[in-house]
Design a protein around this nucleic acid. Structure first.
Lengths: 175, 175
DNA sequence: ACGGACATGTAATCGGTTACATGATTAC
DNA sequence: GTAATCATGTAACCGATTACATGTCCGT
């Protein structure tokens, strides 16, 4: 139930409407926990029903502003400190590697080179993000940089791995 | 629709029953694309309906052995070479990092140390797997080693990142 | 004879995606 | 006036998980 906790996390920074949350997800959480508009409105209702958030203001166009409750904050903290993060993650990229023996070695090589290129691209994008948030000693900046650093290290690892893997293909017997 | 392709990939190595596939998923694919028994039987039916696989033998206890068809092999190869892998994905581990400012710095430190420990554990497990499959120039061994290497590099990266991140927390102002 | 492995299936539920549907307010 | 943005909601569908349900064969 991580969507619920992602929403509680954002609401912990201040009251927001469904529409506000939607933009926050797009801007800062899209790489870590994407969510659709439908999902957000549905879950906001459930959050209010279970007392983890409440409507604190109504505005134009039917706008409803929600705030996290004490129970919601407690639930958020419980999730962060007491719930073990999921270990395994599905990867269709890696799944293809398992079955690369069903295509020509030349296509396998191409596949791995493409992975390296994609990783480089991602790395370049994140490097720019890091520059933008290089300042700030406040908790939000510090934790933001830690998250971005994960992405940078991940894409660097993936690029190096893919380049190494291309070299490994020389071991293959002629087909 | 990666489950379908994972199954086609396994069937490409030879005919198998639902029960056989189940064990193969548990043993070799559980870290990359877990699947449940129900899912496998359901998808096997659809694979047969759409002509990507077919029943080639029936055995005791109602056992049905499936083989990949030419259409299935074509679909598998198409998926490997022409379909772009999903780039990023959901990580509740990283999501928690975004909201570490809602708990005490000491708990944040603990969270990150636990990530480092979990990564070390995973790394040790994979190192043992690598030893077991160190031999072999055949495609299956080569691609298997490439996949395991990804896991090793990933867990190494995660451990180093988590250790680095703990150090970053010294930047935080006293709470 | 019996237990463990082999073997297949269905139903309920859940979280997520896509598409549909509607309308108010604001800036130009 | 009108286009962009703000704003909320519902319905259908899909893939994955959990639980239920049933029965057979093989080794000891």
């Amino acid at each position: 139930m991580s969507l619920r906790h992602a929403m509680l996390g954002l609401l912990a920074r201040g009251p927001a409407s469904g529409y506000d949350l939607m933009k926050m997800f797009e801007i800062s959480l899209s790489n870590v926990w994407p969510a659709t508009q439908s999902q957000l409105y549905g879950e906001l209702g459930r959050l209010a029903d279970t007392g983890l958030a409440e409507v604190v203001a109504e505005g134009p166009r039917g706008r409803k502003e929600y705030a996290i409750t004490d129970a919601g904050l407690a639930e958020l903290r419980h999730w962060i400190t007491d719930v073990e993060p999921n270990r395994s993650r599905r990867s269709d990229m890696l799944l293809r590697v398992f079955f690369l023996d069903t295509v020509e070695p030349e296509q396998a090589r191409h596949y791995l080179r493409e992975r390296a290129a994609a990783a480089t691209e991602q790395q370049d994008g994140l490097a720019k993000v890091r520059e933008l948030i290089a300042e700030g000693r406040d908790p939000l900046s510090v934790y933001g940089r830690i998250a971005v650093e994960w992405g940078l290290r991940f894409s660097a690892m993936q690029r190096e791995w893919a380049e190494w893997a291309v070299g490994q293909l020389d071991q293959l017997p002629p087909r």
